Each structure stands twice: as C-alpha cells, then as structure tokens.
Simulated scan of single mutants.
Amino acid sequence: MTNLTLDVARRILDMALAKGVEKKLKPLVVTVLDPRGCVKISAAQDGTSLLRSEIAHGKAYGALAMGMGSRALHQRAQEQAYFINAVNTLAQGRMVPVPGGVMILDDNGTLLGAVGVSGDTSDNDEICAIAGIEAAGLKANAG
C-alpha cells in the first residue's frame, strides 16, 4: 500500500470508535490525517465536549509534524519544554503533545498518515488509535 485510501481511513476510524465503546470510554473524536496533514476522515461520538475535535486533530498533526507518535512528543515536552513550545509556536499552536496521536505505517514502514483520538484519558485515546490502525492491517507507532 502506498497511500491511505478513504476506505482504509474509515475502517481505522470505525474500529477506533468501536474500541472506545468496548472499553466503555467517554465519547471520543477520531481524526485520520493523510501524510500531508490533510483530514481524510473525522467523526465525533454523541456527547463529546467542544474542543475534542481540535485536540484529536492536534495529536495527529503533531505526530506528523515531528515524525513521531505523540507519546514521544509528550516525553520530549517534559524534557525539553522550551523546544516543544517553540515548535508549537511555529506550527501556529496546532500540536497537542500528549498520547493519542499515532503514526500509521505500512508493512514496509512507509508513512501513510496519523490518527488522533481525544475524549478519554490520553492513554485510553492512544489504545483506541492503535486498535483502529491494527484492525486495518497496518502498523502503529505511538512513540
């Protein structure tokens, strides 16, 4: 696979949301971005709070912008807060450096895009993103 099709993105989204339902998590937003950072698909479960869509997008966008899952960005933010703040300023505040932004890779390690999930704890958001990616037969890199 050399690109992320809408059908594959839809499967990732559906399976990430299904994982949230299975785990009885708070309502989630899932956003799938292509490698350019453009939205391929996004959906919010009923009852999500106001900024969840922007947060989900920011988790995926940050992963793509820095080339690492947002768990690694979170760690880096703890170790090098000034650097992450400077990069986020350059990104016009679009990065959310906490777990829940996961890189999508094919079997050859080619970057296909990223998934961002927001709504529950960051760890649970990440679990759902990984579940969606793996259910689509792809590899996840959470950082």
Rank of each mutant, 00 (worst) to 15 (best):
M1L: 10
M1S: 13
L4N: 04
L4V: 06
T5K: 05
D7I: 08
L13W: 01
L17C: 09
A18Q: 15
G20Y: 00
K24N: 13
K24I: 06
L25N: 12
L28Y: 00
V29S: 07
T31Y: 01
L33H: 03
L33T: 06
L33K: 03
P35S: 11
V39K: 15
I41Q: 10
G47H: 01
L50A: 14
L51R: 13
S53C: 11
S53P: 14
I55F: 15
A56Y: 01
G58F: 13
Y61M: 07
G62H: 07
G62L: 12
M66P: 00
M68F: 06
G69K: 02
R71N: 08
A72G: 05
Q80V: 07
A81H: 12
I84G: 00
A86K: 03
V87F: 13
T89S: 14
T89C: 13
L90W: 07
Q92L: 12
Q92K: 14
Q92I: 06
R94Y: 05
R94T: 10
V96T: 12
V96R: 11
P97Y: 12
V98D: 03
G100M: 10
G100S: 11
I104G: 03
N108K: 15
T110Y: 04
L112I: 11
A114I: 05
V115S: 08
V115M: 06
V115N: 04
V117T: 05
D120T: 04
S122M: 09
D123W: 01
D125S: 05
D125K: 03
C128L: 04
G132M: 08
I133G: 06
I133L: 10
L138G: 05
A140I: 04
G143L: 07
